[in-house]
Design a protein around this nucleic acid. Structure first.
Lengths: 259, 259
DNA sequence: AGTTATATGATTGAGGTCAATCATATAGAT
DNA sequence: ATCTATATGATTGACCTCAATCATATAACT
């Protein structure tokens, strides 16, 4: 018995939202909530997982944003994705002590996860506007965690806005680690105005600035400029210099940390 | 082959920490991380779950703090615990529009969960210092969510400290919903000085003040005073008036919302 | 109106998870 | 030194989850 495609899409969107809200849902609960059979629930889960945002577990599904647990690829022992390699490279730049800033975004969340696994931290102060990064680092020994307040933006799972920018004014960072949505000859950019405004503010308070972007962001010129290349201490990326050069990005070797 | 009891305890503490940090761990991953058999991992999970802080799922375990999913008792369809009833009573006091504050703590987290399920909210502004409450409410339609920044305190999973108190200064709340660790004839108290300081500050910015405490907090006089009974709009509790009276707490009917 | 595509629920067998049970080795108690 | 308690890993059978397959009904297409 076929159901209209737009009804299927709405149901799957509702599924994604339920998992996102509740953190974890078992399959039988999904059947109840969506009034579908187990077989349909499983197919819907497969479809939603393929689009990202949830992780399948045995018997249910987990909200990605609420979980630091490794993705399916990572669990399967496949080659670590670019984000994980970039994250590890970023964490290698983190001082054992001092004050750092962590941005929102999935690459920085991977960095938070890597940092949480690190041994030997001694009184590292971490400041973030990402709830996901905060969740991961909240119980890490040697880390004193601060969150800048602000308005919660759902899509980024981060705190932004004028209050967040104002809160930054109280800080000075030894190093800041940020993400972006695009990089081209002009520099780093983002698609959301208040994200870009916030990131620009972070740059003003940081001694060293690292941007972490994978190859998928290359050549994208999203509308809001965040940083020119001269403003970065280094770009941490999986993209080789020739490909960067093809997009007009020419960085001295010390300014590109290859992951 | 028996292992010293203190080694068992350390292993279980490590298990709790791993789950808390990663959000979700499957049993086979626990076996790898702790170097134990599946049978031991399952026994350890049972023990840690019994102490609270994690929720068993099929094939693994979930960090409670990262999950809004119902507890085992709730999933089992048993009588809803006091916390859930108190949470629902608290949510009934929430206006459809306006600005409210939500505290940290498990009862308020239950209220956040209940609020997330509510229909018909229209531009309710929610301000919180709890990462757990923020996670739950982040994608609720009709809710504009703000987090007050501050230093993250792990045990409470909340943001506290002078920066948090300062951030509160920018707000005025129609209603505030808070928890406590003790209630006696003198009022509401807490065991942690910075939590109490923060809560007192919240009271100064709120029109109506609701405290949500279950019977287990009755008679406990934890060291830091938060509020006298006169400062409350109402106490939301499962405790009947005679038991409150036995501890010197005498509230007019309008000041006690029984759950 | 007729044809094709596909979403659905039911069924099935394979595979995974689970707690109980047991033998063993060692911690803990005497 | 001896005895008791219990944590451990292996095993087992029950139970649960899973994807594939199929028949059906309807959406989508012509």
């Amino acid at each position: 018995m076929r159901v209209p495609q737009h009804i299927v899409d709405l149901r799957r969107e509702e599924l994604r939202r339920l998992i996102r809200r509740d953190g974890f849902l078992p399959v039988n609960e999904i059947c109840k909530r969506l009034q579908v059979s187990e077989a349909t629930a499983r197919r819907d889960l497969a479809a939603v997982e393929a689009n990202g945002h949830i992780t399948r577990t045995y018997g249910g599904a987990l909200a990605d944003y609420n979980s630091a647990f490794a993705s399916h690829d990572e669990r399967s022992g496949r080659a670590r994705p670019a984000k994980t390699r970039i994250a590890e490279k970023a964490v290698a730049q983190v001082p054992r002590t001092g004050t750092i800033f962590l941005d929102a975004g999935t690459t920085i969340q991977a960095a938070a996860r890597a940092l949480a696994h690190r041994r030997g931290l001694t009184r590292l102060v971490v400041v973030t506007n990402s709830l996901a990064a905060a969740s991961v680092l909240g119980s890490t020994p040697g880390v004193e965690l601060h969150v800048v307040g602000g308005e919660f933006l759902n899509r980024q799972a981060a705190l932004m806005g004028p209050r967040a920018i104002k809160a930054l004014g109280e800080w000075s960072f030894d190093a800041a680690f940020l993400g972006g949505e695009g990089m081209d000859a002009a520099g780093i950019s983002n698609s959301h105005a208040s994200v870009a405004a916030f990131q620009k503010s972070v740059l003003r308070h940081a001694q060293r600035v690292y941007f972490c972007l994978d190859a998928s962001k290359l050549g994208k010129a999203t509308p809001h400029r965040v940083a020119a290349w001269s403003q970065l201490t280094a770009l941490i990326s999986d993209t080789p210099p020739p490909r960067l050069a093809a997009h007009g990005i020419s960085l001295p070797p010390a300014k590109l940390l290859r992951a």
